[in-house]
Design a protein around this nucleic acid. Structure first.
Lengths: 332, 332
DNA sequence: ATGTAAAATGTAAGCGGTTACATTCTATCT
DNA sequence: AGATAGAATGTAACCGCTTACATTTTACAT
């Protein structure tokens, strides 16, 4: 690969001049500019980004840490972040945190050591304090799916409690009175908040919360199946089920149908997230829309703004979930 | 951030010595090694990977270009590649090609300019010649999901024709005689091959191919819906349907069910890929297993072997699809 | 022609590491 | 004790670029 030095030789100018035309900085006479450009073309020259980074202390890379790289949810985050960043010639380095404190920390460490200009984090296990600390230390951070006190403007989050509430309320208004739930992991903030929303809706309508009608899952489909079996074993009748995400809803629905329970005739089910496969299900799953694509985009814009000084695009930090009614819920 | 220079000062040794202990290279007496390590600890020193890259001409990053970052299929590739590479401290830079020649080329350009040590490519639009050329030019390439003549050992591929054949044969053996198909884009290699397999199976069992029972899709769910409507409009009866991927199958099934066609009683459907949501469907979708996770892993191992000289892990270049029978197919 | 300010270009010192080669210790042998 | 090989350490050039500052050109006014 040709270097800037060879270009300068061929063009008969100095290194600095070549650098100037590369970066469009400083003033270069049109004549020399042309000579340089021609020389670059002739040599097939492309700047070495590593050397540029070393000299400028800018790597133009942003690290993205998400729980998993697969799945209907995280793929979309990734996709929107990359899309937004790529148009500004920033590249994204990815790694997975697996919702485990040690792995998440390790991932952050890994990305920082890669000289990322900024980090976009979707983390569960790591504490608010740790995140706060990170920010103070050195590297710009944007947190997604969580609101860290004191750094709200660098967080892109959604009101999970409201989502859980809305889902449950929808069912209640449909006439259901025995409403079971399969929650997310209660140690995860969003799992907890969605559950709290469920509780609030029950309270508000004077329905008593029955712990036997609650099962805790882990957001994976298998735990939805387990949860459903567990609920059924209680032999306490219920006519509706709110699940803390769509995957678990899919698992629950599968078990129910297997046992001859008709959805939505015998049981109304609502999920959460509105991932794409909800419309492939039979019946199509009612759910709570989580604007994950927009949120990823906003996270990217945050770093564009804070780190690369690019403004212009609007940023929304807080989102509201909204219920999407499909065929898996009906009146009772 | 502390530099190697500060460490050398504090430890009272030369730059070279510090570098030696960082890289475990050369001989360093245990005493000095300890001094250096202590100094690094004290300063919280971490090597600057950018500077290392510049000096060694190794960025320890591998670029991954896939059609899309979202979706059930590509997430899994990404996940397995990252997983495999991360354990060796290599990081992955991602970008999407959107199955468009210009965008794919641009993505390759983008990744190379990022000084990736190697590229893992899942590309459709770009020609074999272009890929071959790339390899000759400079940067190590591993191609996934496609076999480029002359560089088979750097390709991780699967026998799509065989997959299409097996899917169709399964249906035929179940007693079906009118078998429709919704193909992938026929300009894409895998779409074409799967379709060819379908044709071969028909031939082999003496069934005539009826063009009216073929619709071309684009691998997206919506095109499965469109395809199904189109097939139904022909008013030519068919009792089975082979789809070139699971998403289109999901779309086709949804349309069928909407029109009161029972799966599998009235119509047997088989997909392709065996992505995770096939088991969420009702009925669960029969499909052809595409070992995408293994293939991603193998691609990663290829670069580990070829670029970073790490052997030891077995590599398989060619994979065989196999039919997975679930509830969406039955005898006729 | 001469002086001067502004425009254009060049010089050289970093950025933070690696590494070939040179130099200095150490230990062993005679 | 002196010679010597091998181990340990140091020196300095280099990776390819940016940029503060110095120098040279150019254009224009006098």
């Amino acid at each position: 690969m040709a270097t800037i030095y060879e270009v300068s030789e061929l063009a008969g100018v100095s290194l600095a001049t070549v650098s100037r035309v590369i970066n469009d900085s400083g003033v270069v006479s049109p004549k020399t500019r042309d000579k340089v450009i021609e020389a670059m073309r002739e040599l097939g020259y492309r700047p070495n980004t590593i050397a540029q980074s070393l000299a400028t202390k800018r790597s133009n890379s942003v690290g993205v840490l998400i729980p998993e790289l697969y799945g209907p949810f995280f793929g979309v985050i990734l996709s929107s972040i990359e899309d937004e960043l790529r148009t500004e010639s920033k590249h994204v380095i990815i790694t997975a945190g697996h919702s485990d404190e040690a792995i998440e920390k390790d991932g952050i460490e890994f990305l920082s050591s890669r000289n990322c200009d900024a980090l976009i984090l979707h983390v569960y296990a790591v504490s608010d304090e740790y995140i706060e600390q990170l920010r103070e230390s050195n590297i710009p951070i944007v947190v997604i799916g969580r609101s860290v006190p004191g750094m709200e403007s660098n967080c892109i989050s959604i009101d999970n409690e409201q989502g859980g509430y809305a889902a449950t309320k929808t069912l209640i208004e449909l006439g259901h009175r025995q409403i079971a739930t399969i929650t997310g992991p209660l140690w995860k903030n969003d799992g907890k908040r969605r559950f709290e929303g469920y509780r609030r809706a029950l309270d508000e309508f004077g329905l008593e919360f029955n712990p036997a009608l609650q099962a805790e899952g882990d957001y994976e489909e298998a735990s939805g199946r387990r949860g459903m079996r567990q609920l059924l074993e209680q032999e306490i009748p219920f006519t509706a089920l709110v699940c803390a995400n769509d995957e678990m809803a899919a698992g629950a629905v599968a078990v129910a149908q297997q046992r001859g329970i008709s959805i939505p005739d015998d049981l109304s089910v609502i999920g959460f997230d509105n991932v794409y496969f909800t419309t492939y299900m039979n019946p199509a799953l009612s759910t709570v829309h989580y604007p994950i694509e927009d949120m990823g985009r906003m996270a990217a814009r945050c770093v564009l703004r804070d780190v690369y000084g690019m403004n212009g695009k609007a940023i929304q930090n807080r989102f509201e979930p909204r219920v999407v009614r499909r065929a898996s819920t009906k009146g009772h």
